[in-house]
Design a protein around this nucleic acid. Sequence first.
DNA 1: AACTGCCCCCCTCAAATTTGGGGGGTTGGA
DNA 2: TCCAACCCCCCAAATTTGAGGGGGGCAGTT
Lengths: 246, 246
Amino acid sequence: MKPTSLVSEHDKFLEDLSALPDVNACIDAICAYFKIEFATYHLAFHEGKAIDTPYVKTNYPSDWVRQYLVMNYIEIDPVAQSGFARALPCLWADLDWSDPKSGTFVEDAIKHGVGGAGYLIPVTDRRRRRAIVNFASPIDPEKWATKIEDIAVVLGECAEILHRKAILDLYGKEDERPALSPREIQCLSWVAQGKDAGAIAIILGISEHTVRDYCKSAKHKLGCATLFQAIHKATMLRIIDSDALD
Amino acid sequence: MKPTSLVSEHDKFLEDLSALPDVNACIDAICAYFKIEFATYHLAFHEGKAIDTPYVKTNYPSDWVRQYLVMNYIEIDPVAQSGFARALPCLWADLDWSDPKSGTFVEDAIKHGVGGAGYLIPVTDRRRRRAIVNFASPIDPEKWATKIEDIAVVLGECAEILHRKAILDLYGKEDERPALSPREIQCLSWVAQGKDAGAIAIILGISEHTVRDYCKSAKHKLGCATLFQAIHKATMLRIIDSDALD
DNA sequence: AACTGCCCCCCTCAAATTTGGGGGGTTGGA
DNA sequence: TCCAACCCCCCAAATTTGAGGGGGGCAGTT
């Protein structure tokens, strides 16, 4: 397998894709090009708002989108649940569907005509934003697997492009979200868990001074007057959370 | 007008409503009883999750629900925007529809067959959770206004019941969300804005000691080891935010 | 090859602030 | 009556803050 050659085979397409105006257009283009039924882009959060609104772009049929929302299926959908937790793409078939709740979810999906095979691509950018991109078709999982194998790398590129388009759509040209270093995020996260500098130093195996220094620089990067404000802001921006601890 | 007599007129209905198993059943029952086309319950946030998921229960048609989600209409829908900001119920007609964005939103709503008159009821509970309940019908706004006038109080009760059902659905019997006092929330919010105790004392017109005491008790109520952790937790639970400042 | 920026890591010191523990009190609602 | 919210105070110990000072390494640019 030569990923690079596979990509270059579709270079022209990716270029065209990047030129499209919005996420919806990209979704349609990808589906048409690869002859895939459904594609969805789903950004985990939409920071700083008082009202939770997922940023979702999809070409799934209305009935299913409505049902998914109203039934709060995101809570039990293994694709979404593990998609936002894992780092590497995978076939839906390779996920864990053993939970009985997944069963009712799948039944309902089939009832809505959207059962079948799928491919999940998690996206994480340098600013700790998380999204998932899903491709799905109502075809035989075996055939789907071989089809995907050939284009997995290109689909990965497509996912990146979708994400960039979404961020552009949401925040415009300049993306002001501060990029903290991994250590800064770790220290801030531990502080938010109620640990003091001494404890964090032991946990991370570094000096207490260094822990303080990371908190300081994180505070400055976030443009905050106090560390309290930095914790608040970083929490709202979802830069720190319990799984950033280690 | 005698609100109490109006309520008692529908006492039996409200009792039956409380006995229903879930939010969806309540929505259907309310619509049937009052001959209203559409009803929606929308909880602003769904705390502590890494993925933003609105808690929405509605009997709106699928096409419209999908469109609303995919177009991110929540951002421009005056009903949702002012609903989560205001405290008192009002007719949709009395909202501010002057923004040109509202125009395209309304057009699209009409295209989806859901234009018409509506009544918005904001819900805020003691634990600072916010929700909106909306009732809508494709009838003449004048007629709608007189119809609502008669049942406004009962609809308010219905909204309360819907909210209780939703909270029960989400968190089960015991609702562990800590209830901070208004002063505690204020102090915590100001701390999260980067103010120190001295500045907050001046802002709120109380002693510096008192500010500290509020932070202390808030920290204890939230079950946190440090104030940093309290700020983090309160931010995640959406107990503190910029409009809790005054 | 030099430079710049960032990440990573460590340290000092004095001043300011927070913490945890106590002690008061009033008021209004269940 | 009790409880919670609201308000005020003290103190010693611990901690954080702000301002400096170091160091090495890696990646991209000029």
